[in-house]
Nucleic acid binder design. Structure first.
Length: 353
DNA sequence: GAGTAGTCCAACAGAAAGAT
DNA sequence: ATCTTTCTGTTGGACTACTC
């Protein structure tokens, strides 16, 4: 299996170790150790701890064995159960590690997903969370796992089941403060995450509904995702809206044409960019009674009345932070239909399927 | 003006879901 | 089982801002 090898810079390793709440640790492990930066930072904090390193890369393992003779170091494809079982070190560590540190491969190669087995069932997720969930098998009750993850790992559709699992069984703390930075040769947004086994199941904290009409009736809306790809447009057809036509809350049609059978909306509607920087001025009110096709990069909210559309736009204005955080992505920000529907429901809208 | 860094976002790859 | 469509999420080029 090939993985991205962006080793942890020392300042980030120190931040990951500082993010842990554990004052004492008998065993500290990193299962994607790379050049050992996280474990070197750990040695400074937990001076008497036994250090365990694992990595897939031969060169990395040899280097660690040479430079840190007192560490226990094993070569292992951590996401492969048989490789873990063959390791001399790992099997004896199941449920024994006090502190796990991880900077797993972020993997930006398409939508590849990994099947992950837990005691509560198997599910697919991204590579980074597959590492985390597998690593948790080695955590001692009362232990803590601290990791650098791609910022999107907690929001993406692909990792939804994994995040639900983690939030249910573990107490999860995030630090988005250090949101975007450089690994050597790569720029990504990341988040520091701390996980420890949960003692009690958390109660959900609901947001008070916000979108309301003066009549008191709930606002109904239908989410329409555009599918017209810009490199595959017909010469003639239905007028099409693309993100470049959306600015300052207004739509200016620029003569693009889409296939008439592709998803479309008719005013009153709200148009949102699906990908790109999430500034509120790109949320456009579209009121014309002319049906328009939506490009692949646009999501429409089909409303029943102008006042409904204005209500929703006003709610986005009141909850700018919620609007901004709807968009997430390890590289470019994007919005999914599921995330949008969830926010609309939180704001009090009735979302039609 | 050239070089570099940061930001934006259109394009498209890959996976999942649906249709046949 | 295979093909097609839909959807998610990343890549990489274009553009802008900044520094020298």
């Amino acid at each position: 299996m090939s993985t991205d090898a962006f080793y942890t810079p020392s300042w980030l390793a120190e931040a990951v170790v500082a993010f842990s709440s554990k004052n004492r640790a008998r065993i500290v492990a990193d299962f994607a150790a790379g050049d050992g930066a996280l474990l070197r930072a750990a040695e400074l904090r937990w001076r008497t701890a036994e250090i365990v390193a694992a990595d897939l890369c031969d060169t990395a393992v040899r280097r660690i064995r040479k430079t840190h003779e007192n560490w226990s170091c094993t070569k292992c494809d951590f996401l492969d159960a048989s490789s873990r079982a063959r390791s001399r070190t790992l099997p004896s560590l199941l449920g024994e590690v006090d502190q796990i540190l991880l900077n797993p491969p972020f993997s930006c190669r398409g939508g590849t997903s990994f099947l992950t087995n837990t005691r509560h069932g198997a599910f697919k997720c991204g590579q980074a969370l597959a590492f985390v969930i597998t690593a948790l098998e080695y955590l001692k009750p009362g232990g803590e796992l601290t990791a650098v993850l791609p910022s999107n790992a907690l929001n993406s559709q692909k990792d939804r089941q994994a995040v639900r699992y983690l939030r249910h069984f573990y107490s999860l703390t995030c630090d988005y403060a250090a949101s975007s930075s450089h690994f050597k040769g790569c720029r990504v947004k990341y988040v520091l995450v701390s996980l420890s086994p949960r003692m009690q199941v958390k109660k959900s904290n609901k947001v008070e509904p916000d979108v309301s009409r003066s009549s008191g009736k709930q606002v109904r809306v239908q989410v329409v995702r555009g599918t017209s790809q810009m490199h595959d447009l017909p010469e003639a057809g239905r007028t099409l809206v693309h993100t470049t036509d959306m600015r300052d809350h207004r739509v200016e049609l620029n003569g693009h044409c889409g296939h008439p059978w592709r998803p479309s909306v008719i005013g009153p509607a709200i148009l949102l960019p699906r990908v790109g920087a999430p500034t509120l001025d790109k949320a456009c009110l579209y009121l014309r009674r002319k049906r328009v096709a939506l490009s692949d990069c646009v999501i429409g909210l089909q409303c029943r009345s102008t006042s409904d559309a204005k209500c929703i736009l006003a709610a986005f204005n009141r909850h700018r932070e919620k609007f901004t955080t709807m968009f997430s992505g390890t590289c470019a920000p994007y919005l999914t239909v599921a995330r949008l529907k969830s926010v609309l429901q939180e704001l009090g809208c009735l979302v039609d399927d």
